[in-house]
């Protein structure tokens, strides 16, 4: 039986690499597989999508996966979006990178859900929020395949030395820390809103890009305008009170303003993920 998988992440989290590792591991399990990156330009921080198709016979079709049996989300903020469950097959499995148990997942539908805190695992094993391998172990646990050894073999084919060791550590922890798979607590899907995927031209709102965000201490601010002049996205407006004001839909969370503030008035805080 053919199984279609959709992977959501953002540029830099390794969604495309995750698709290749998964396809390779499935192949080592004796299956046939196909890893398909979404066409277009990939930008660091921008939401990206990749697809995997796994079958007992050679995969011959060349279309994208339109009704995935499994959806895997590498990013904790994207994990809160109903959009992730769009077009999923009935009874399909939604695996989220989330700091909360599956019982608290708000993404709804006639699907099953599981969670793993992949960002934490990645930060602790790789010391960076690259969550692709830190969720693959959980995939193996929740889905029942591919074998952990197969994923390890795929990782060692892709990476070498210390990097490979750290990633293998990440999949093992991820396997152990994956939650139970339960039916989605919310049965009726909420409103699904489109997410700006990277590409050429102008985007409407890049709020979903931020992992960290600037927080300005107005008492410390001297009004020097450094943050305003160096912001590549004009996300900082200057108010009549001679103070900066952040236009959130434009802020990608790069941290330049934090780094350039001469008096340290801007703090870079991890974006709090509201699971609403």
């Amino acid at each position: 039986m053919v199984v279609g998988i959709r992977i959501h992440g953002r540029g830099g989290q390794g969604a495309v690499t995750a698709s290749r590792l998964l396809a390779t591991a499935a192949y080592y399990d004796g299956k046939f597989s196909q890893a398909i990156p979404m066409y277009g330009t990939e930008r660091r921080g921008a939401p990206v999508t990749a697809y995997v198709r796994v079958d007992d016979v050679r995969v011959r079709e060349r279309e994208l996966v339109h009704t995935p049996e499994i959806v895997m989300v590498l990013d904790p903020l994207l994990s809160t979006r109903q959009t992730m469950a769009d077009d999923m097959a009935e009874g399909g499995l939604l695996l989220l990178n989330a700091a909360y148990p599956p019982e608290e997942v708000k993404t709804g539908g006639n699907i099953r859900v599981a969670t793993v805190n992949a960002t934490n695992i990645a930060l602790e094993t790789l010391r960076r929020p690259i969550t692709n391998t830190a969720i693959l172990g959980a995939f193996a646990k929740a889905v029942g395949w591919p074998k952990l050894e197969s994923i390890e073999k795929a990782i060692r084919k892709q990476f070498s030395g210390r990097i490979a060791d750290m990633n293998v550590e990440a999949i093992k922890r991820s396997y152990d820390e994956c939650s139970e798979v339960i039916p989605a607590p919310v049965k009726i899907a909420g409103e699904s809103e489109a997410i700006a995927v990277g590409g050429y031209g102008v985007l409407k709102d890049v709020s979903s890009w931020r992992v960290f965000q600037p927080v300005i201490d107005m008492d410390k601010c001297t009004g020097c305008k450094n943050c305003w002049i160096y912001c590549p996205e004009t996300a900082i407006k200057w108010t009549d009170e001679n103070k900066p004001e952040i236009e959130w839909r434009k802020c990608k969370g790069c941290g330049i303003c934090v780094n350039e503030c001469p008096v340290g008035a801007i703090e870079f805080k991890r974006v709090e993920i509201k699971n609403e």
Partner: peptide, 9 residues
């Protein structure tokens, strides 16, 4: 430039 494809939706 993009053959009328209009990247980005």
């Amino acid at each position: 430039a993009t053959g009328g494809r209009g990247f980005g939706g």
